[in-house]
C-alpha cells in the first residue's frame, strides 16, 4: 500500500504541477520502493496514452447543420420591443440623438405606409419556418389542408429566402395527432438536398439514382418544417401524406 502523500505526488507529476522539491522527494521514494516505481510507470504511461489519442474530424456539413437548427430570429430586435424602446429612450438623452430619433421615427412611419400599400397588392403571405434560421423571408406558394373530423393537417409549400441563392423551399407541416401520420416526399436525389431534418424521425429510401423517397414520422411534434435546397429550379416533388395505410393527400408540386 502506497502512502497517500506519494500517490498525490505521482498524480501531480503526471499533471505537470509538481514542484522541484516534491519531485526530488518522489524520486527518492520511488527509488526505495520498487512497487511504487511500477505503479508510477503504469500511471505515467496511462497518462501519456491519453495525451496522444488522435482526434477525429466532424462531417463537413456539421457546421451548416448546427446553423440550420438555431432560431436566428431569437435575439432579433423585432422580437424584443422593450429593448428597442429602451434604446430609443436612451437615444433621446442627447439633442443630436433627439433629432436623429425624430428623423428615424418619420422614416418608420413612411416605411409603414409603403409596406401597407405593398401588402394590398401581394397575394402571398409571409410565414415563419419552424425551428430554422437565417430566413429573411418566406412566402406561401401552395397550401394543402383538411380540417375534417377524421383528418386534420395543413401543409404549406414556401419559397424561402435563406441566403444568397434562390433555390430554397420549405414544407411547413401542421398535423394532429402527429403519431398517426407519415409524410412521404418523392424527389430526385441528384438535385434535391434536405436540410433540417434533425427535429424529426425520418428514413431515406433511394429507389434509383434519379428517384428517391423520404419518409418522415412526425411522432414527436405536430409542427415542423422540412427545408429543401435545389441544385436547379423547376424540380418536381411528390407529396404523399399517409394516415396509417391510407393516403389522405397525394400531390405533385413544382418548385419554381
Amino acid at each position: 500500500m502506497i502512502d497517500k502523500k506519494y500517490l498525490e505526488l505521482i498524480n501531480k507529476d503526471i499533471d505537470k504541477i509538481i514542484s522541484a522539491d516534491e519531485k526530488k522527494a518522489l524520486l527518492k521514494f520511488l527509488g526505495e520502493n520498487p512497487d511504487a516505481g511500477n505503479l508510477y510507470n503504469e500511471l505515467t504511461k496511462t497518462g501519456q496514452m491519453l495525451n496522444h489519442l488522435p482526434d477525429r474530424e466532424p462531417s463537413p456539413d456539421l457546421q451548416s447543420r448546427i446553423l440550420m437548427s438555431i432560431d436566428h430570429n431569437r435575439y432579433s430586435p423585432k422580437n424584443n420591443p422593450l429593448a428597442v424602446f429602451g434604446d430609443f429612450i436612451s437615444a433621446l438623452k442627447t439633442k443630436w440623438a433627439f433629432s436623429f430619433s425624430f428623423g428615424l421615427a418619420a422614416g418608420i412611419v413612411l416605411l409603414a405606409v409603403i409596406l401597407s400599400v405593398t401588402s394590398l397588392v401581394r397575394t402571398s403571405i409571409e410565414k415563419d419556418i419552424y425551428g430554422t434560421i437565417g430566413i429573411t423571408s418566406a412566402e406561401v406558394l401552395r397550401s394543402f389542408s383538411s380540417d375534417s373530423p377524421d383528418n386534420f393537417f395543413k401543409i404549406d409549400l414556401l419559397k424561402v429566402r435563406a441566403s444568397d441563392d434562390d433555390n430554397h423551399f420549405a414544407f411547413n407541416v401542421d398535423i394532429t395527432p402527429p403519431e398517426e401520420y407519415i409524410l412521404e416526399l418523392n424527389y430526385n436525389p441528384e438535385n434535391v438536398i434536405f436540410e433540417n431534418l434533425s427535429s424529426v424521425k425520418f428514413e431515406k429510401i433511394n429507389l434509383e439514382s434519379t428517384s428517391g423517397k423520404i419518409r418522415i414520422f412526425p411522432s414527436a411534434t405536430s409542427r415542423f418544417s422540412v427545408m429543401i435546397a435545389l441544385k436547379n429550379t423547376g424540380e418536381e416533388i411528390g407529396i404523399n401524406l399517409l394516415k396509417g395505410e391510407k393516403s389522405v393527400l397525394d400531390r405533385k408540386v413544382s418548385l419554381k
Binding site: D55, I66, H72, S76, P77, I133
Partner: peptide, 24 residues
C-alpha cells in the same frame, strides 16, 4: 444578443470542431 445573428455563426465556426472532438 443585440440581434446580429452573424456573430453566433462566427462562434460556431470557431468552436464546433473542438466541441465535436470533446464530445467524441
Amino acid at each position: 444578443l443585440n440581434g446580429k445573428g452573424k456573430s453566433f455563426e462566427i462562434i460556431v465556426n470557431r468552436y464546433y470542431k473542438t466541441v465535436f472532438r470533446l464530445a467524441d
